[in-house]
């Protein structure tokens, strides 16, 4: 068995070829390695649900605070945290985990408004923002603000009320945190009393819950009070592997470029600078641009 030696990293002066580690055969091996890793991740997610996942430290209080901060910046009124909407959002999140989907409309055709009616929230206007795989509350609100349709919801002056659900569970075999944000305005304003719970302005109708019960409801949907860590953080794992492999191939091409220039080797192959540039962009993109969080 031949071991990898220093010579394997250098271009072949006599054959005028790339190094062994950049040969077509070697590049094919790297591709197969990646395919194998991807297949292993899929199999692990299916066979051992919850082992892979996304670390999360999101909480509804922060989401509420950041949402209202954004509205205040635009000169809009603050939204009241409505216990009914919070209950509806929680039911939507539970439904997504139960039926393994992440969408505004469930596979069986249930629309978000169904959850509003289930809690007797008679709305004149309503909206829904979803998020998953984020690890911080601030990133969730930032992502919504960066997306025109979600921003329109968040900054809609017609809404009076808001409800959040931050629920941890397993979706598609990955442990994750789903965030549901419901907006609404009641068709018939009900007599309300605003109470403060943990710095949150909570709206309470005459017939709704007692203060302590509202607190319990908020705790029930805000499961992220404790930080969630899956056994393997899939984002960190895949990002690390990708950066190592991309960095390795990038370094090989840099060596090839430097050594060939130094020795004046003219090889009949692709343009080394083109490969270097593509790999450099890939490293920057994977390292700094890709975020695990998704909004819908």
């Amino acid at each position: 068995m031949k071991l990898v030696t220093f010579a394997h990293f250098l271009p072949d002066v006599n054959g005028k070829r790339r190094s062994h580690l950049l040969s077509h055969k070697a590049l094919s091996y790297y591709s197969f390695l990646l395919l194998f890793l991807m297949a292993s991740i899929r199999v692990t997610a299916v066979r051992m649900p919850g082992v892979l996942g996304y670390a999360s430290n999101i909480n509804a209080s922060d989401l509420y605070k950041y949402t209202n901060e954004q509205r205040k910046l635009k000169g809009l009124s603050e939204l009241n945290l409505d216990p009914d909407l919070t209950k509806a959002a929680s039911a939507k999140a539970e439904d997504m985990f139960k039926n393994n989907y992440w969408a505004h409309v469930s596979p069986s055709g249930i629309e978000p408004w169904y959850f509003f009616s289930e809690v007797n929230y008679d709305y004149s206007t309503a909206g829904e923002n979803l998020a998953k795989n984020f690890n911080e509350s601030k990133s969730v609100v930032k992502a919504w603000m960066d997306s025109p349709t979600h921003r329109d919801n968040l900054l809609n002056p017609n809404y009076n009320d808001i409800g959040f659900a931050v629920v941890n569970g397993t979706l598609d075999g990955y442990q994750t945190t789903l965030v549901v944000q419901f907006f609404g305005k009641r068709r018939t304003p009900v007599p309300v009393e605003k109470v403060e719970i943990g710095g949150l302005k909570v709206q309470r109708s005459d017939s709704s819950l007692l203060e302590s019960q509202i607190g319990e409801k908020l705790s029930a949907v805000d499961t992220s009070k404790k930080e969630e860590f899956p056994l393997i953080d899939i984002y960190f794992f895949t990002k690390t592997i990708s950066l190592i492999l991309a960095g390795f191939v990038f370094a090989l091409f840099m060596i090839d470029f430097w050594y060939s220039s130094r020795k004046g080797i003219v090889k009949l192959n692709g343009h080394t600078l083109a490969h270097i540039f593509l790999l450099m962009l890939a490293i920057v993109s994977i390292g700094f641009v890709i975020v695990p969080g998704r909004v819908l």
Binding site: Y30, M38, T238, L245, A246, S285
Partner: peptide, 14 residues
């Protein structure tokens, strides 16, 4: 081959 590797790297992280 290099384009394929780059595509697979992104596919894995995404």
């Amino acid at each position: 081959l290099i384009g394929g590797i780059v595509t697979l790297l992104f596919a894995m992280v995404l």
